[in-house]
Design a protein around this nucleic acid. Structure first.
Lengths: 154, 154
DNA sequence: TAAAACAACTTGTATTATACAACTATATTC
DNA sequence: GAATATAGTTGTATAATACAAGTTGTTTTA
């Protein structure tokens, strides 16, 4: 087993499961469910977007996104407005309350990482962050390209 | 936003979603579903184990593991035997056919990583693998400790 | 050592996140 | 202006999971 890509692939598969397990077991569902957290995070970091843009960025079906948004709007964490230039689409934006909630949840989640990464050097932490960011950026491009392609010829 | 742990936490959350999206969109469900892949991987790397051990390692409910195993046994990829020392528990072991199947699936999955990591240096790939392994090992310990605790006082 | 408590697994049921298909309202194209 | 395409919604199905109750086997204890 000396093929590094294959090893990475395996480790990532396990990682994804462990993260998911830690998430549900540690944070409970009380805080904010996975999809809600990611959506708020995305809106805070990328500013407003339409549902379709968000769906493309994560290769989600628009129906899925549509449903994810309802409770967030009801809780007042996200604001949804009809886009003036195209009345079919809605523009999503995080609210002040949403930012506050996000900060709270982030704090709770941070604790797991304090525990798990406590014996990592700052340099290791920095390197891990850097590599994750690169990986994610690449996957995001890929997702968007694939979403665009599906639109082109369905 | 200069808190590195918080940044890692966020990047990991996004990473988990992207990996999951890429998995379902890229490999389809044709190959082998997520739980089956992880179970075979675990059995190949760790040798035989009982269902309870596997559940503890991933903080899964035993009922979940119980169901995951049925199709694998039916497909002949895993063998399940009553444990001689404790007839309540079953010992799981990957079969030759399971190893073969795993190899096939791994090959297909590898392709995504070829694409996404093509411009990473070998050193970056190695570093990423190393950090993921450490992270996973730590989360595994944690999962097992928590499972043991739940048994102690439920 | 028999009864009680406990443990490993299974089965029934509910929940959650997702996709796909059909639909509605609006835009674009010809 | 009619035909086609797009953004989002709603109906329905599936997959992965947890929790609760049940079964069978094991350990503790009075």
């Amino acid at each position: 087993m000396d093929d590094i890509l294959q090893q990475i692939e395996q480790e990532v598969a396990v990682f994804a499961r462990r993260i998911e397990g830690a998430r549900t077991r540690t944070y409970g569902t009380a805080q904010l469910d996975r999809s809600a957290y990611l959506l708020l995070l995305y809106l805070q970091q990328n500013g407003q977007c339409t549902q379709g843009e968000y769906a493309a960025a994560f290769e989600l079906d628009t129906s899925t996104v549509s449903r994810q948004i309802v409770p967030l709007v009801e809780m007042g964490l996200v604001e949804r407005k009809v886009a003036p230039q195209d009345k079919r689409s809605s523009v999503l934006q995080i609210t002040a309350q949403g930012i506050e909630k996000l900060q709270e949840v982030r704090q709770a989640r941070r604790e797991l990482y304090e525990e798990v990464l406590e014996d990592w050097t700052p340099s290791e932490q920095g390197q891990f962050l850097y590599l994750l960011q690169r990986f994610n950026a690449r996957l995001k491009e890929r997702a968007e390209a694939r979403a665009a392609m599906r639109k082109g010829r369905p």
